[in-house]
Design a protein around this nucleic acid. Structure first.
Length: 465
DNA sequence: GCATTACGTCTGACCGGGAG
DNA sequence: CTCCCGGTCAGACGTAATGC
């Protein structure tokens, strides 16, 4: 039963693409029509690190609006459809059972979006305020729907679909060419589309959140609350925010105070502590000033520093026989005026504007990811496996293979700068330590890591234990 | 060429363990 | 016990390499 299409009196004949690539290109070209306007089609060849995701289907579609994603397999009916599709797709589905593999795919999507600002902008329109990577993960963490796009639906296609678990759909994508032209120069397609139907979602797979790390120090909120409880909340906040602005960074905190510090050649030293625990409504906000450190930091005389403080401040030392770095003044800021006066004098003496960066709030991932140390042996082993040296990418691939099962979602996320994947960044730091120890060569060519004899020995000794 | 990515290094926040 | 030192490590930044 040979079909014909008649358009304005011109006859079009069925046309069978000669290669899958031909059909694939046509599918990509019309992906918006097939999958809907809110969909994004990521073709296989755009994947940056295909090795990481197991067997790769022809493409992936992400739909933020419907909150679902598709695994796309393009086939020609003339090929042995069953043996082509079924093992391929099953293998992929099996791989994505593994959460870390899904994160890997999410990363690929993320990179792909980021590689094209227009695409990122389109995605933003659909996800609103939500963070892009998070939105991708949310969709990818659901089970996918397998979409087989084929030039002609045959009984074999139906059989193949039956052998694939989960949600699946097959779509016919037919091509016709104009009579007397005979090739793709003048063509039209008869395309089945997904329409607006949302595929059924079953057995949703949640990505486990890492458990919260235990915290040994008081949080800023708790310290603020203590200040509040002791009747010095306003004073505390005024001084805290003022100092943070002046020093341009977040202070350290202990169980009883917040401590602003600075780097000196002799190491980190405290400049000033605010102690809400020792404060009280009647006496005021208790503060300790490390006079020598702060004077050195400000590059002023200690006597001048003394005059910046309220007259009521007294000599103070951290311990009875503390060294110069741990001596200073302590006392109470009784009212807001005391604090404003101190802050303005301090501000006037800050050496220069540079080094005053915008306060960046970093959230610690310590304890929630694989630590640097845990990569030492795998890196050396990977280098041995590569015959003593290898390109960074090769090493990373081996590490990934060895450790992928242990990655947490945080390991697989990009770092906030978006310039690196967290675990890869950690591996580079681990190699830096190994290099400092002499276990990895310091003068290998750029981009190549090389194990040293000392490194091989270290590896042997560790493996014997 | 310039833009982007990959790689290497530096800065500073965090926290374990030791001193008081 | 409390507090802080200083080593450790996350991640931003700088620079080389590659892509277009």
């Amino acid at each position: 039963m040979e079909q014909r299409i008649l358009v304005d009196g011109v006859v079009y004949f069925p046309f069978t693409p000669q290669t899958e690539q031909e059909l694939e290109d046509a599918v990509i070209e019309h992906s918006e029509l097939i999958f809907g306007k809110s969909s994004f089609f990521l073709p296989k060849k755009k994947l940056k690190t295909p090795a990481g995701i197991g067997s790769i289907p022809d493409g992936f579609v992400l739909d933020f609006k419907k909150g679902c994603w598709y695994v796309v397999e393009v086939e020609l009916a003339s090929h042995d459809v069953f043996s082509h599709i079924v093992p391929q797709v099953n293998k992929f589905l099996q791989a994505t059972e593994d959460i870390s593999q899904r994160m890997k795919l999410a990363n690929e999507f993320y990179k792909w979006f980021k590689s094209e600002p227009v695409r990122t902008a389109q995605a933003k329109l659909l996800i609103g305020q939500k963070e892009l990577f998070k939105s991708i993960v949310d969709v990818i963490s659901k089970p996918p729907t397998v979409v087989v796009i084929i030039d002609e639906k045959t009984r074999e296609v139906a059989e193949a679909l039956k052998a694939i678990p989960g949600n699946k759909i097959s779509l016919e994508f037919r091509t016709f060419v104009r009579q007397n032209v005979g090739d793709m120069r003048v063509h039209l397609h008869l395309i089945e589309t997904l329409g607006t139907a949302k595929p059924s979602v079953g057995g949703e797979k949640k990505i486990a959140q890492p458990s919260g790390a235990k915290r040994s120090y008081l949080s800023f909120e708790e310290l603020e609350q203590i200040a509040e409880d002791n009747g010095v909340g306003r004073l505390y906040n005024l001084l805290f925010e003022g100092l943070r602005e002046i020093f341009g960074k977040t202070p350290w905190r202990t169980k009883s105070n917040v401590s602003f510090k600075a780097h000196f050649e002799r190491g980190q030293r405290a400049l000033l502590n605010i102690n809400p625990v020792k404060s009280a409504r009647d006496s005021g906000l208790y503060v300790e000033v490390y006079k020598n450190n702060l004077a050195e930091y400000l590059n002023i005389e200690v006597s001048r520093l003394r005059r910046m403080l309220p007259a009521s401040f007294e000599d103070w030392a951290l311990t009875p026989n503390a060294g110069a770095d741990y001596k200073g003044y302590s006392g109470f800021f009784k009212n807001e005026e005391d604090i404003r006066s101190f802050l303005s004098k301090l501000k006037a003496n800050i050496p220069n504007e540079e080094g005053k960066k915008e306060g960046q709030s970093k959230s610690s991932v310590r304890g929630k990811i694989i630590s640097q140390k845990e990569y030492y042996i795998p890196i050396l082993e990977a280098l041995v496996e590569l015959g003593g040296s290898g390109k960074v990418r090769e090493v990373l691939d081996i590490i990934h293979r060895k450790m992928k099962d242990r990655f947490s979602p945080l390991d697989l996320e990009p770092v906030p700068s978006g310039k690196d994947i967290r675990w890869e960044s950690t591996v580079k730091w681990a190699r830096n330590w190994l290099r400092e120890q002499g276990y990895i060569s310091s003068d290998s060519p750029w981009g190549v890591w090389e194990i040293t004899d000392k490194g091989r020995e270290y590896l042997r000794s560790k493996n014997n234990n």
